Simulated scan of single mutants.
Amino acid sequence: MKLVSRTLSLLVMTGIAVFFMGCDGGGGEDKTQQEKQLIKLNSTWALSKVNNDGTDRNDFLNIKLEITGTYAQDGTYNYKFASGGTLPNPSPWPKYGTWKFGANPLTEIIRDPVSSSSTNPNSEIDMNYEVTDTQLIITFVIPDGSLGWAGGATRAKAVKGNWRFEFTKQQ
């Protein structure tokens, strides 16, 4: 009887030990909203559709948006637009720059935030975004009077207005 009792006790103790070995101790911090969103955004995105003030634009050819960066609280990250493609001239996007999360990191980013090292203090653009595992949609407004940024084609077109860019995640 003692043998059965000891064996049963040993099995229960072993089971408890195995269960707790699978736990991380509860001391790990959860990722912040910014960190979770950065993980989703860090990728290469192929441009699938562009709309400016209700008109589809077909002059953005083979464009890719590369978003890169390592998480830092309230950090600034990098982007490269037009990777391997051609932008209209002028363009509502610079070819590369920096960005950071806005007040709501789930839906807002600031492209080319003004800093002490900014070469163009008028380049800051508030943007809204939606991101899933496979799609990124970015919307923003370029105010009247903006000159835009140099593109890659010779066609000149105003950059002002409401913009919507839809991207598909590259594998």
Rank of each mutant, 00 (worst) to 15 (best):
L3I: 13
L8V: 12
L8F: 10
L10Q: 10
M13A: 15
G15R: 07
V18R: 12
V18L: 14
F19H: 09
D24N: 14
D24C: 07
G28I: 08
E29N: 11
T32I: 00
E35V: 03
K36F: 12
Q37W: 04
K40D: 11
L41P: 02
T44M: 14
L47A: 13
L47Y: 13
V50H: 06
N58P: 01
D59I: 02
D59Q: 06
F60I: 06
N62V: 05
K64F: 09
I67V: 13
I67W: 03
T68C: 06
T70Q: 11
A72I: 07
D74Q: 03
A82L: 00
L87Y: 06
P88Q: 02
P90D: 01
S91G: 10
P94E: 02
P94F: 00
Y96A: 14
I109G: 02
I110S: 04
R111I: 10
V114A: 11
S115H: 02
S117K: 13
S117Y: 14
P121K: 10
E124N: 07
E130M: 15
V131R: 08
V131C: 11
D133P: 07
I137S: 13
I138W: 05
I138A: 07
P143H: 07
L147Q: 12
W149I: 03
W149V: 04
G151Q: 01
A153W: 04
R164Q: 15
R164Y: 14
F167S: 04
Q171K: 14
